[in-house]
């Protein structure tokens, strides 16, 4: 029996599902091995139970929580797909802004004033804390990154097919950066989230001349204090350090604490 696989999304750009669709060279081989029952980006079919559910997106509203809990009850394995599902991603930045301020920024002052007096809109204000999936339900595996890494997706699928646990080593981005022979970002006079960030991305951003923004979340052993000291030594203002941390880590405890 081929395992029933489904994809779902919450608040996200669906870019991770696209990243998987982009693995054209292996996608057909994978589809031979699984039974894809739900994939909004590609097909539309409903099933009552799944073996593996890939869930993209972060959790914002009460109805999201209900939907996710329902999903959890219908799947054997739940995989958090991408940064939104693993650690909240960029939208978790709004955790640090008052809901009304956010609303005003998007819809303008008039709209904000109107909805504040209209009780039908009040529930909006309670809906704005952005959470990763594991703040709501148990997550069995994490495919980190914005977007996810096809090689990790493939490793996970193969592991699930063999009934084994996928292994993603808790190594900093620096490990792959060195393996790729990159000049350290610090050598270029820039700062980097690499030393505290989960690797597995093959240091793709640094390989291409950019810096690591930490989209894959902080490592369990991350030495945050040391990283802040490092940023300060590079004359980064505390305000900007905070901003770097909140770019992708706004829903992580560390993003709130810095």
């Amino acid at each position: 029996m081929k395992p029933k696989v489904a994809f779902f999304d919450f608040a996200s750009c669906e870019g991770c599902q696209l990243a998987i669709l982009n693995c054209e060279d292996i996608l057909l081989d994978i589809l031979n091995l699984v039974n894809l029952v739900e994939f909004r980006e590609a097909i539309s079919e409903k099933a009552p139970r799944y073996d593996i559910a890939f869930v993209e997106g972060s959790i914002h509203r009460d109805e999201d929580i209900e939907r996710l809990q329902n999903l959890r009850s219908r799947t054997t394995v739940l995989v958090a797909l991408g940064a939104c599902a693993c650690n909240g991603c960029v939208q978790a930045r709004s955790n640090f802004v008052a809901p009304a301020v956010n609303y005003e920024a998007v819809y303008g002052e008039d709209a904000r004033n109107r909805v504040q007096v209209d009780a039908d809109f009040w529930s909006l204000w309670s809906h704005t804390r952005v959470r990763p999936l594991d703040a709501v339900v148990k997550v069995d595996a994490y495919l980190r990154g914005c977007p996810v890494v096809p090689a990790e997706f493939l490793h996970l699928v193969k592991s699930m097919l063999r009934g084994t646990t996928p292994y993603f080593p808790p190594d900093a981005v620096c490990v792959e950066c060195k393996k790729n022979g990159n000049e350290c970002v610090l050598e270029r006079g820039e700062t980097c989230m690499g030393p505290i960030t989960w690797g597995g991305c093959n240091s793709i951003c640094v390989n291409n001349g950019y810096v690591c923004d930490g989209c894959r979340g902080t490592l369990p052993h991350a030495n945050i204090q040391s990283h802040i000291t490092l940023m300060r030594e590079h004359n980064i203002k505390d305000e900007d350090i905070r901003s770097r941390y909140r770019l992708f880590l706004g829903a992580e405890p560390i993003g709130r604490g810095v």
Binding site: C174, V175, A222, S226
Partner: peptide
């Protein structure tokens, strides 16, 4: 005290 345990020194 400041070590990130990133393995750079080894690599």
């Amino acid at each position: 005290e400041r070590c990130f345990s990133c393995g750079t020194c080894n690599l």
